[in-house]
Amino acid sequence: MERSIPYEQRRNANLPFGYWCTADPDGYPHLVDETGTRWASLRDYIWCGRLGMHRGSDWQFEQQTELLLAVLAAIDRRTIYIEEKVTDLFCGSWNVAHHYGSWLAGHELSGGLAGSLTPEGHAILVALASTRSAGSAPIPVGLPTIAPWRGLDRGETRDECERIFKVNEAFAARLPGRFLREQIGDGPGIKLVGEPEGANIPLARVLWTMEFADDHARDRLFAWLIHRLDRWEAWTTIARRDGAQALTEHFLHLRFADEPIERA
């Protein structure tokens, strides 16, 4: 009966999922829900208690809860077409993506991959983002994004774009890899800079670069990247593991996903 009542009428949707649990410092597992059931962590409560999933090994549990976090963040942060989500999050597998979207909709966490998060889905997103391991990058929940534009903006939106760029750039300073707007040679460009490396004098490593004809062209790609800030950690891994060309090819796959075929 309780599930028939909307989450936002049963809970405070402005707080992370599980805020009603209590901690027992004298026992382990130490997280106690309303029924008195004990859980090893908030993520265990979400994955096994709320979603009824098997925990599996520590590696499997971490992998699956991180995938859930990535999908919820992708749905929450931006509105993009479905093919890009399938390509970037599910390695191009439409069957897996469709099943995952149906699973989310069945649990009333979102309207599938193409819909929006429900209040409960957003509460779970905040809870998962708040419980990442110490070595993981933060997730940009609630950061502003930029309304897409086409062609020259003639300065009409530049001030607002710069304001949002700076908010996101300040957040990205805490990431293990971040895209920066910098001069490359004599022209504007974007660099992907990884974490500092080296034992004696750690130096940041440039993992990927791209040059542009003018500031507007550069900022148009940077705005595209800002909309996908939650994916920077994964893209940094691609560049570090497979090289700059692999990341460029991945961007091409994403950028032309859902693009219609032009007919004469």
Rank of each mutant, 00 (worst) to 15 (best):
C21M: 13
C21D: 04
T22K: 08
A23W: 14
A23S: 07
D24I: 00
P25N: 04
G27D: 13
Y28C: 08
P29Y: 10
P29L: 08
P29K: 11
P29Q: 12
P29C: 10
H30R: 12
H30C: 13
H30D: 15
H30Y: 10
L31Q: 06
L31R: 13
L31P: 06
V32M: 03
E34T: 14
E34A: 15
T35K: 14
T35L: 11
T37L: 09
T37F: 02
W39P: 07
S41I: 02
L42E: 06
R43V: 02
R43G: 01
Y45V: 00
Y45T: 00
Y45K: 01
Y45H: 14
L51G: 06
L51P: 08
G52L: 12
G52E: 09
G52P: 12
G52K: 12
M53L: 15
M53N: 15
H54Q: 15
H54W: 05
R55Y: 07
R55W: 05
G56K: 05
D58L: 10
D58M: 07
W59Y: 11
W59N: 13
Q60T: 12
E62H: 11
E62T: 10
Q64W: 04
T65R: 00
L67F: 01
L68D: 00
L68C: 03
L68N: 00
L68A: 01
L68P: 00
L69F: 02
A70R: 15
V71L: 06
L72C: 05
L72A: 02
A73Q: 08
A74Y: 02
I75S: 00
D76A: 12
D76G: 03
R77Q: 11
R78C: 09
T79V: 06
T79W: 03
T79N: 05
I80R: 14
I82W: 02
E83D: 13
E83W: 03
E83Q: 11
E84Y: 03
K85N: 03
K85I: 12
V86A: 10
V86L: 04
V86C: 08
T87V: 13
D88C: 14
D88R: 10
L89Q: 12
F90D: 08
S93P: 07
S93D: 15
W94D: 09
H99R: 13
H99S: 11
H99Y: 07
Y100T: 00
Y100V: 00
G101S: 05
G101M: 04
S102Y: 03
